[in-house]
Design a protein around this nucleic acid. Structure first.
Length: 689
DNA sequence: GCGATCAGCT
DNA sequence: CACAGCTGATCGC
């Protein structure tokens, strides 16, 4: 839970995600996403009063967050005072002190945070330098490198301070399985259940919060079954989410809630009260999304864990893991980093100690070794031993950003596949696309087989299910694929694997029912890798679409403008023709009054760097009026994520006894760099070979 | 009656 | 077990 006070030292006149106490004097407010712990004071009488007196104070957030917020009657009084800003659109905001009339300008850019629908990070650029407030975020390794607006002139912009989501900034959360792995695990489990009969249903035991939508949309898309939820009016203008939800209880996938849900479940009753269909009792399993993590050297387990006769836990995380945080921070390399959250069991000092080595404020006091100019950014090598070495290989030369794929280009298939390479790698040759593509298919395929590790507790906390238990066992299948010809977790963890792999025992045996009623999805046990792989590649594309609806889309979720609403409501009611729409920008006028010049989207994309630079020099910047970020851009990139995340997940930072970069390789790299060639280092393994 | 805070429980 | 949020009790305004 966020313990950020609301203010950043550089720009103390604005408040983010906190609206009480000293924040009552802010000149502008920002909301990163619609979770209650980031909305403290947002509907308090004090702030209400403030709004009534100070007519120039506004709340800035993403269009999706605005929509979600205003759906709640309690926050409706904000209606006229919220200004939504499109994601990835640098926008200048006036900060006016109404008492003195003093005015200051700041440029803010919203970057997708991957935490829940509408969630963003805020990049502020003004006279005190650039600061990044991440809000809550989950970004896969290397995703920062793909954020155009964090770069300028081919490099990461100079960031003074980062205010960071440190929820899992503790080595014990070293790795959390990627979104795709988790999703695939859940898809397999559900698929193997609900395909058995129309009376086999699943209850997703989700918490009352935004963030599961991408799960729902993917499930719905995959199985053609809408997910039953209690409420969906908040999505009324987001057809790409709405389309996958229903309030009709006669579906096979439920995410409805009830205070006594657990009790109901014991009695084979869904939270919505349903127990049967056509007078035939339902067979129900529950799946509880929970964060599973594993440390650097702990034994592995699956992304799905059986916890009872018909209960499962499925890995799911809204927040970046320790290594994802470190990857992010070391890429950004700010002067300072401040934690927004103190992880349970840690202290502020401890977290700061972890963050410090990744910041310039620390590194500048350390000797630097810069043989050939900038290798990303100078860093101390003695720090986190293995991992840093790892990074040395990962984020190669200073060039990559020059080669960053312009967003429009992403549309081209060839480039598309290029984007699936591991981030931080300079994507030079188009022709290598094919090979990388293959790579990425393999890895995404792999995602299906991978067993993840869990170190949540050393003792085995989960129930041991007797092998005679009824029920399928898609997971056991995964266990069989250990010799697939792709990198495996084992490769990276071998040394530690002598530990008995009793993880298996957590899973239902595939004996009885499972074997005989083996769900369609898994029936062709030998062809299954083919099967799954094709499923997966379609899934990729598919995830990409979902992505734009699911988490990224939160920023990009297709929103309907008010003019479109009536129409869309009807289509929704008819459940007939669902067609994604692009939202009109409903940005408010104050900015326009400030005579900022709207730019055309394409030039926007082409001139990103310039935009940022201009922003930096205080010149007018874009206001996102009357335009939108092309949908395709983010429709595609999530798939990028899908694949590259899977792949990057296998670039697990080395374990202590992993090999260090060899002299020859460093030479090779340095030579290339020296001659100005761009260097491609494929899988790390290739680099090592 | 409402809000803030805390304990307890998912 | 770990995400975020609800409920209910208590206290103060």
């Amino acid at each position: 839970m966020s313990s950020f006070g609301g203010q950043m030292t550089e720009y103390p006149t604005i408040s983010i995600d906190r609206f009480d106490r000293e924040n009552l004097r802010a000149r502008a407010y920002f909301l990163s996403h619609c979770h209650k712990d980031h909305m403290k004071g947002l509907r308090a009488p004090n702030l209400k009063r403030r709004l009534e007196c100070s007519l120039k104070v506004f709340l800035y957030c993403s269009p999706v967050t605005k929509e979600l917020l205003l759906t709640s009657p309690k926050y409706r009084f904000w209606e006229k005072r919220i200004i939504s800003i499109e994601v990835e659109t640098p926008t200048q905001i006036p900060l006016i002190d109404e008492a003195s009339g003093e005015k200051e300008e700041i440029v803010v850019t919203l970057l997708p945070a991957g935490h829940c629908p509408g969630s963003v990070m805020f990049l502020f650029q003004g006279n005190k330098g650039n600061v990044l407030y991440t809000g809550d975020f989950r970004l896969a390794k290397g995703e920062a490198a793909r954020m155009e607006l964090l770069h300028s002139g081919g490099r990461v912009i100079d960031i003074q301070s980062v205010y960071l989501d440190t929820t899992f900034c503790d080595p014990k959360f070293y790795q959390i399985p990627s979104r795709e792995e988790c999703l695939n695990g859940i898809l397999e489990l559900i698929g193997s259940w609900i395909t058995r009969s129309p009376y086999h249903v699943v209850w997703l035991n989700c918490k009352a919060a935004y963030g599961y939508e991408y799960l729902f949309t993917n499930l719905s898309e995959q199985f053609g079954v809408q997910v039953h939820v209690d409420k969906l009016d908040m999505f009324r203008n987001m057809p790409d989410i709405l389309h996958h939800l229903t309030t009709d209880r006669s579906t096979q996938i439920h995410a409805c809630r009830h205070p006594k849900a657990e009790e109901y479940f014991q009695w084979n009753k869904l939270p919505c009260g349903v127990t049967s269909k056509d007078r035939i009792p339902l067979h129900t399993i529950s799946i509880k999304p929970s964060t599973m993590w594993f440390g650097e050297r702990t034994r592995k387990t699956n992304v799905i864990v059986r916890t009872g006769e018909s209960s499962y836990r499925a890995c799911f995380s809204f927040h970046s893991s320790y290594s994802e945080i470190k990857d992010f921070l070391s890429y950004i390399c700010p002067v300072n980093a401040y934690p927004n959250v103190i992880p349970v069991g840690l202290t502020l000092d401890k977290v700061s100690e972890i963050l410090k080595p990744l910041c310039r404020s620390f590194q500048s006091t350390e000797p630097k070794y810069k043989p050939l100019g900038k290798l990303k950014r100078a860093r101390t090598t003695h720090l986190d031993t293995e991992e840093e070495d790892d990074d040395l290989f990962d984020d190669l030369p200073p060039v990559p950003l020059r080669h960053k794929v312009p967003n429009q280009e992403i549309l081209q298939p060839e480039v598309f596949s290029v984007t699936t390479i591991s981030q931080n790698q300079p994507e030079k040759p188009r022709q290598s696309a094919g090979c990388f593509e293959e790579d990425s298919i393999q890895t995404s395929l792999l995602a299906n087989f991978v067993d993840c590790q869990e170190s949540n507790s050393e003792g085995e906390e989960e129930l041991d299910i007797p092998a005679s238990q009824g029920g399928m066992d898609p997971l056991t299948l995964q266990q069989h694929k250990s010799d697939v010809d792709v990198p495996q977790w084992e490769v990276f963890f071998k040394k530690n694997d002598e530990v008995t792999d009793d993880g298996l025992e957590n899973f239902p045996s595939s004996t009885e029912a499972g074997a005989s009623q083996s769900p369609k999805l898994f029936s062709d046990s030998d062809g299954e890798s083919t099967h799954i792989s094709s499923q997966n590649s379609s899934q990729s594309t598919h995830i990409s679409e979902q992505g734009s609806q699911g988490w990224d889309s939160q920023s990009d979720t297709v929103l309907l403008s008010s003019q479109e609403r009536n129409c869309s409501d009807i289509t929704f009611l008819n459940k007939g023709s669902y067609r994604p729409r692009i939202k009109e920008n409903i940005i408010a006028s104050p900015l326009e009054q400030d005579a900022l010049c709207p730019k055309n989207t394409h030039s926007d994309l082409k001139n990103r760097d310039q935009d940022v630079n201009r922003v930096g020099t205080g010149e007018p910047t874009a206001v996102s009026s009357g335009k939108h970020i092309p949908e395709e851009k983010w429709l595609l990139s999530p798939s990028t994520k899908a694949d590259s995340q899977s792949s990057s997940d296998f670039e697990v930072p080395s374990t202590p006894d992993a090999e260090l970069p060899k002299q020859e390789h460093l030479h090779y790299l340095y030579e290339k760099l020296a001659t100005g060639e761009s260097v491609i280092v494929g899988r790390k393994k290739k680099a090592h070979s």
